[in-house]
């Protein structure tokens, strides 16, 4: 991980974020003390399995968690030094779509079916800038062209577009106001591979143009490799490994991360079987004590089963939440 100078405030700083869900009288700890940092213009990849808490983190930043049943119970999120959790709802709205925007996972349902795509883009422009209606429309048309959709299709409805095109519209909406931070929640998961490449390229181009920072949530290591500067691996609501892309890819330290790489089929060499990680992700309301990964970990020791596991520093300087990293490193070579 790049050495952090304590003097300069990071662009985005998440400190000890904790979020709880309430369902049927049970309390679920979805996010458990997560801390992240992001520099302007850089990309942080957030990797983990479904239900690990990735989307929750993104929604918490924007404070668009559902009112009923979810609650931010602790932590701070600072954007350029300003604590977003301390802002009023009205102030927060000025930030949403403007300074921070989000791209959602499922393009098929992310757009309002009864509003034209052009109007949906124009709406976000209207909310955050001054001007006349024709100004907003013009900007919307610009965005459409920018994402590769002819401007004539302004007046068409989402159901008239394919999945890939819809996602482009979502991207257009997200980038229309030149946000400083883009939260991309598995933007390519629902698309087929060829479209995936197009969309990723598109995002990359636009980001370069506007120098937008991005928090990319994904479970696809290939996408991480292509787009990210830094990587954080999240498991059961906690960050268990955190470093630069090179560090994580070249020297994964946590057994879980190693397991993730191991599960990817190799393009070189013959593989007969896939190597998944043993076991299943833990029940969110019944997390294992100590290290949450220990029931599935081949390196688990007695010490792993109890107490709080803190972040350790690895040999090449990135962070890992495991007390046995030396052992693991030795075995993996």
């Amino acid at each position: 991980m790049s050495e952090q100078k304590m003097e300069t405030e990071p662009f985005l700083q998440i400190e000890d974020l904790a979020v709880e869900y309430y369902s049927d009288g049970k309390v679920i700890s979805a996010v458990n003390g997560v801390s992240l940092r992001l520099e302007k213009g850089k990309t942080l990849g957030l990797v983990g399995e479904t239900g690990a808490g990735k989307t929750t983190i993104a929604k918490s930043i924007l404070r668009i968690l559902p009112d009923v049943g979810a609650k931010i119970t602790g932590g701070e999120v600072k954007l350029e030094g300003k604590d977003l959790f301390k802002l009023s709802e009205v102030e927060m709205r000025k930030i949403r779509g403007n300074n921070i925007s989000m791209i959602f996972q499922d393009p098929m349902t992310a757009l309002n079916p009864v509003q034209t795509v052009g109007d949906q883009i124009a709406e976000v422009v209207r909310l955050h800038s001054k001007g006349e209606k024709h100004d907003f429309v013009k900007r919307a048309e610009e965005m459409l062209e920018m994402v590769g959709i002819p401007a004539e299709r302004y007046h068409e409805y989402p159901h008239q577009f394919s999945g890939g095109m819809k996602q482009r519209v979502v991207i257009a909406i997200a980038l229309a106001c030149n946000p400083d931070l883009l939260l991309a929640d598995e933007p390519t998961t629902a698309l087929d591979v060829t479209i995936q490449a197009q969309v990723l390229d598109l995002i990359a181009d636009l980001r370069k143009k506007y120098n937008t920072a991005m928090l990319l949530i994904t479970h696809d290591m290939g996408v991480v490799a292509q787009t990210c500067d830094d990587v954080a691996v999240i498991y059961a609501g906690k960050i268990i490994e955190y470093g630069s892309k090179e560090q994580i890819f070249d020297h994964p330290a946590h057994p879980y991360t190693i397991g993730l790489f191991g599960a990817i089929p190799s393009m070189s060499g013959d593989e007969e079987w896939l190597h998944p990680i043993d076991g299943l992700p833990p029940e969110p309301f019944n997390l294992p004590k100590g290290c949450t990964f220990h029931p599935r970990c081949p390196y688990a020791t007695e010490a792993c089963r109890g107490g709080t596991i803190d972040m350790r520093r690895t040999a090449d300087g990135h962070q890992c939440r495991c007390i046995n990293i030396d052992t693991v490193k030795k075995q993996e070579g």
């Binding site: 924007l62 709205r93 959602f104 757009l111 309002n112 979502v170 909406i173």
Partner: peptide, 15 residues
């Protein structure tokens, strides 16, 4: 509960 409602909120649309 729909996704596009979340999208709208994420755009900063007043409630």
């Amino acid at each position: 509960r729909s996704d596009y409602i979340t999208t709208a909120r994420a755009k900063g649309v007043p409630e």
